[in-house]
Amino acid sequence: MTASRADEDSRLVERFLDGNLQAFNELMAAHEDRVFGICLRVMRDRELALDAVQETFITVYRKADKFTGESAFSTWLYRVATNTCYDQLRKNKRRAADPLPDATDPADPHSDAAFAAVELRPDLQRALATLTPEFHKAIVLADMEALPLQQVADILGVPVGTVKSRVFRARRQLADALRNQNPEPQRRNGDNDA
């Protein structure tokens, strides 16, 4: 999140709280894809994710006055999104450990090929599903959405050290789960260049 984006968000929030609906639309436009990404990784279903994104922005609309400005708007928004997604998961009783369907969802006939490319590999989906919610949240926000650790900490309401620990352990569990599905080593032996 760049400073200019954060500043622009702050201005938009102020305008929205002054009654400017277009400002809300602009906030939504700026963040809807990222919120959808978070929700999709959590819900593992595009329809459910879309529901959660909608609920997130409705919550933002109704509770924007609760945003104090102590953190970036995006941090507050992603916290709302994360909580909404997990709340809906609980309501839907769709636990992360549920078996995945063999095939991905039917393709949206209006979508293009790139759209399908964002779906997760089935083995990765299954591996992610083995993580506890705490670890799953950490890895979704830090590794999949590539948010800064401090922002992840603010979103989750835990210290940065806790986030680091959760991410580290989540990767370890993820790797174990991947190895269990694919006994042959998956990765090359080469180093990861710095």
Partner: peptide, 13 residues
């Protein structure tokens, strides 16, 4: 291994 797998995931839109 975990990071290599996660890096293959394209951003959702």
């Amino acid at each position: 291994l975990a990071l290599d797998s996660l890096r293959l995931v394209e951003p959702a839109a």
